[in-house]
Nucleic acid binder design. Structure first.
Lengths: 134, 134
DNA sequence: GTATGTGTTATATATCTAATATAACAGTTG
DNA sequence: CAACTGTTATATTAGATATATAACACATAC
């Protein structure tokens, strides 16, 4: 498995898991229809509790990135990913605002801010286009 | 005071406070050398506890955005804001990554991502250039 | 048809964070 | 001296995080 958990981080384990799995889906490392490890096996692999993994899976299910077949397990959403609709864009802008404020406060230019922002997105996009043909 | 606290939010009160004061500094609404309200008066204004305000002030002091004169109170940093050095830029990129991943996963284009990112920064910058002459 | 493997649900516990409530202290200012 | 700073200390409540065990419903494999 590609997941790495940092137990020293102040980011909750279930959040680290959620983020990394979502990143795997976004980059195409995990393809639609592909099965995720069972909550028990992934928990055992990572040396964490089953419920911690389950919490991450539930968040991904509620946000529409995975489907959960009660007895088959969790699989990457195959019926189309959730859209970047207006509600999401608002949430995103809300999250970005304090980060933009701190950057502006530290004297960062718009160009620098956009360069870092662009790099974050392009790195993931490049990974996706490298691992598959779309 | 310009601060608005949302008690329903899942964002901790001290974080909301920290963010809004930092935004005030970034936009120039709060100018270098300007005094912040005392922890007691701001707490009373917002209907929250003195220690919650103090926690926000301490975070802002530790990150270099305000100075605290033990008996005069907290004032906006007048000796230059903390720099946007490499360490900060790394932290920023770290924070942006999961957001970029979700946006990519939802099918957002680089252009859309940059547009939202740019808007977040420019709104604050415009506010700053509107409230002062620099 | 029993065994195994899914997610799910239920309790219980330990630890940490967030927020509040009081109280007191040290040092400045009016 | 009185009033105001931030600071420190102690205590309590509530919630989040993470763990541990156990059991359940249901499908599939032997």
């Amino acid at each position: 498995m590609f997941v790495r958990i940092d137990l020293e981080s102040d980011v909750p384990i279930y959040t680290q898991l959620t983020n990394q799995i979502m990143e795997g889906i976004a980059t195409g490392e995990l393809k639609p229809g592909e099965a995720l490890p069972s909550v028990r096996s992934l928990a055992a692999d990572l040396g964490i509790n089953l419920h911690t993994v389950n919490k991450a899976y539930t968040i991904l299910k509620d946000s529409g990135f995975v489907q959960i077949h009660r007895q088959k397990g969790a699989v990457v959403q195959s019926g189309g990913m959730p859209p970047a609709d207006d509600a999401y864009r608002e949430r995103l802008a809300e999250q970005l605002r304090p980060m933009a404020a701190e950057s502006l406060g530290r004297g960062m230019s718009l160009e620098d801010w956009l360069a870092i922002s662009r790099a974050s997105f392009e790195q993931l996009k490049a990974k996706r286009e490298g691992s598959q043909l779309s």
